[in-house]
């Protein structure tokens, strides 16, 4: 018996596929983002294992002269302590200011009123990425806009959430904006991401010049803990040609995001 078959030509096949690609390209990110989160949810196990292996593989990088495991452990502790000290210092300054202005009012550590939800990273953050995928989602109380803390410093904001996974937009992402304060020079501005490992605070008004290494703290925003938390440090500052007191400051995160084992999401209203 003769079998009548219909074979699509290469050109038609190519045209159909290109059309499909074009549809994906112009589909809203909220829809395509769900597809990406679904992929992360389905392959959560292997992706988590891969992240652990990647972290383990990077350990010898840091160690040159001492035992690599010890070196990495000590470096992590040192980094956390440095950020913790910076936070405590800022909290102390804030407390002094509050005591001076509102004599007698008791300050409550805001972080105690918030729940910190630990979450594991399931993609390889690397140094060039500005997005993290984490293994916690709506079921764990995560919602878009919540702040994310790594090594006691603010590293980003939850941008998309599915039932079991979420996407974190790092402070270095070009679409990220975070009100910040440089404590030493008492200057406030908005920090914007500028791609891998870098962010910028454009047009910040400051009487005193900022210095390399100055700590940058997250400033009061809805959902942000009421206490200052360090987020970045100054790496470069340029004076505006029009106004001597206006600066453009380049900063970098104080947290080694590429080697973070886990993060904490700040969930308000414990």
């Amino acid at each position: 018996m003769t079998r009548y078959g219909h074979k699509t030509s290469k050109r038609m096949l190519f045209a159909y596929c290109m059309l499909g690609g074009g549809i994906f390209l112009f589909t809203p990110p909220s829809v395509t983002g769900k597809l990406q989160l679904a992929y992360a949810r389905v392959f959560r196990g292997p992706l988590e294992t891969g992240h652990d292996i990647t972290l383990a593989g990077r350990i010898p990088l840091a160690a040159n002269t001492v035992d690599s495991a010890d070196y990495t452990r000590l470096m992590t502790i040192q980094r956390r302590l440095r950020n913790h000290v910076a936070n405590l210092q800022a909290q102390l300054d804030e407390a002094h200011r509050q005591i001076d202005t509102l004599a007698g009012l008791r300050s409550v550590p805001e972080l105690n009123r918030m729940k910190l939800q630990p979450a594991g990273i399931i993609n390889d953050p690397g140094e060039t990425q500005t997005i993290l995928l984490v293994n916690r989602g709506q079921k764990d109380g995560l919602a878009a806009g919540q702040f994310v803390i790594g090594d006691y410093s603010v590293i980003g904001v939850v941008s998309d959430v599915s039932a079991q996974t979420a996407r974190v937009k790092l402070i270095t992402d070009p679409t990220s904006k975070l009100p910040v304060r440089i404590a030493r020079i008492e200057a406030k501005g908005v920090m914007r991401g500028r791609g891998p490992g870098e962010a910028v605070i454009p047009e910040i008004y400051a009487k005193n010049p900022p210095k390399v290494g100055d700590q940058v703290y997250g400033h009061k925003t809805p959902g942000f803990p009421g206490v200052p938390i360090v987020t970045a440090e100054v790496v470069e500052s340029k004076r505006s040609p029009d106004n001597a007191r206006v600066w453009e400051i380049t900063v970098r995160p104080v947290c080694d995001i590429a080697n973070l084992p886990e993060i904490h999401v700040v969930i308000p209203g414990k």
């Binding site: 190519f14 690609g21 390209l25 589909t27 990110p29 983002g33 990406q36 992929y39 997005i131």
Partner: peptide, 28 residues
């Protein structure tokens, strides 16, 4: 014909694994 389908499917996988938030289509 198989090469055409394979190319687009690999592009879809590359977009799915892409770190850019919600950005699908360029690699397809």
């Amino acid at each position: 014909n198989d090469a055409v389908i394979a190319s687009f499917v690999i592009g879809f996988a590359a977009d799915l694994a892409s770190p850019a938030a919600g950005l699908m289509g360029p690699r397809i």
